[in-house]
Design a protein around this nucleic acid. Structure first.
Ligand SMILES: [Mn+2]
Ligand SMILES: [Mn+2]
Ligand SMILES: [Zn+2]
Ligand SMILES: [Zn+2]
Lengths: 150, 150
DNA sequence: ACTGAAAGTGAGAAGCATTCTCATCTTGGA
DNA sequence: TCCAAGATGAGAATGCTTCTCACTTTCAGT
């Protein structure tokens, strides 16, 4: 039986999030917390979770580790909540966006809705779109079944 | 000759931005600055501009006036730059988004690209999209002609 | 025009997320 | 093993935005 919590594969998965950079005990813990998170989280939330088993872990270290994972592409900013950035583990490597469940925090990957139509309209008006940010908020299938249909 | 700076119509336009609320000398000045801005601006930028002719104007007053206009619908958050919110005068009352020129700050109104296709895809997966944020960045026609084609 | 309660103002303090500083560990290749 | 580069933790610092409070202004009702 192969377990996803196997220490060898867990280490490899955690290490991969940093893109081959140096690994510390703290960064390993933080990466595992990111991998085991069910949905989106803020830096502070992750810090609180980690504090339960690692009381000495600093908040700045969490921020630094998340920035490193973000740079390596394993973590994405998927929205914001109450003034804090919402992050999540993101494996998809093609261009896409995220739907964040405002009830449970789950993150659903969505294809980019900016198609030929939208970009062509901008081009027709003489403009050039070089970058865009799209975030969807709503309810995931589970939360919609649970309470949205009442 | 009818001038856009006619005091009667300027007052009316400024007043309209607040949605009929009480009007002070400061709010009038701030509303005119919003109306005369060519594109997007931060609260601090607007404050600096206003300071040139109204040295006593407080930054908190600018923030409060912008919040009031935002609530009334005459001002929209159109993006962010360097950690500050980018605002702009927005008259369009139907659902739309904004393309901000990263060169000159001009704001171009764009139709919402989230069509049936995108929403249906989410619905098919059992999700419900209740809210979304879309911001485009790029170059306006003028800036594209000026430097983008070099 | 007068009055007064509600609303607005200015200065600075306060909040809050995030980043920086710096002295002190760790890590991992040589 | 050695050590230079990198990571850590605590708290200071930063920067945008909001709040507090004493004071002033607005305007609906008279
Ligand atoms: Mn993703
Ligand atoms: Mn608009
Ligand atoms: Zn959910
Ligand atoms: Zn431009």
């Amino acid at each position: 039986m192969i377990r996803t919590t196997d220490s060898r594969s867990a280490d490899a998965a955690a290490r991969a999030l940093y893109g081959g950079a140096r690994m510390s005990e703290q960064r390993s813990l933080i990466a595992r917390a990111v991998l085991s998170a069910t949905g989106a989280f803020t830096a502070d939330e992750l810090h609180h979770r980690l504090r339960e088993t690692s009381p000495g872990l600093g908040l700045a270290t969490v921020y630094r580790a998340l920035a490193a994972m973000h740079a390596a592409g394993g973590v994405a900013t998927v929205g914001e909540r109450g003034g804090s950035a919402l992050l999540a583990h993101c494996v998809r490597d093609d261009h896409h966006h995220h739907l964040v469940c405002t009830s449970c925090g789950d993150v659903i990957s969505v294809d980019c809705p900016l198609g030929e139509t939208a970009l062509a309209a901008a081009a027709r008006a003489g403009h050039l779109v070089t970058r865009h940010e799209i975030t969807l908020y709503g309810l995931c299938a589970r939360c919609l079944r649970a309470g949205g249909g009442a």
